[in-house]
Design a protein around this nucleic acid. Structure first.
Length: 116
DNA sequence: ACATTGACCGGTT
DNA sequence: AAACCGGCCAATG
């Protein structure tokens, strides 16, 4: 068993556990937060093998374009139940339902200078 | 030791 | 919007 990958697995679990109701995060975001921004595929691999008894909100993880997990029927119902919004094409509306952890400290900036 | 396969991503048609 | 491509890396055969 490789130690660092085991730690990586635990960190992924921690992030997923912290996703608030009604919001989703992408595999890429989790990869970034766990210090392996290049390895979003591994996040998916870890989540695929998540034990059910951990009771993690795995349904709140989607891919970068808002697509749901291939073959997981019922994920959409779980998300809709907690208020996640969907687009006409069946993807999550990331614009309104993505958890943007970067924007927790900085609220507003004076708007960008309008250039004619 | 390969080769293939993914719950992926960013950039380019 | 959607398809394709190259890069990524653990797991699997």
């Amino acid at each position: 068993m490789n130690m660092s990958t085991e730690k990586f697995r635990q960190e992924v679990y921690h992030v997923v556990a912290a996703i608030p109701r009604g919001k989703v995060v992408t595999y890429g975001q989790i990869a970034f937060l766990t210090g392996r921004p290049q390895n979003s595929r591994l996040v998916g691999h870890v989540l695929h093998g998540t034990p059910r008894e951990l009771r993690l909100p795995c349904h709140r993880v989607v891919n970068g374009s808002g697509r749901l997990v291939p073959g997981w029927t019922g994920q959409r119902a779980l998300l809709e139940r907690e208020g996640v919004e969907f687009r006409p094409n069946g993807h999550v509306n990331l614009k309104t339902s993505q958890w943007k952890f970067m924007e927790t400290e900085i609220q507003e900036f004076p708007g960008p200078p309008t250039r004619p």
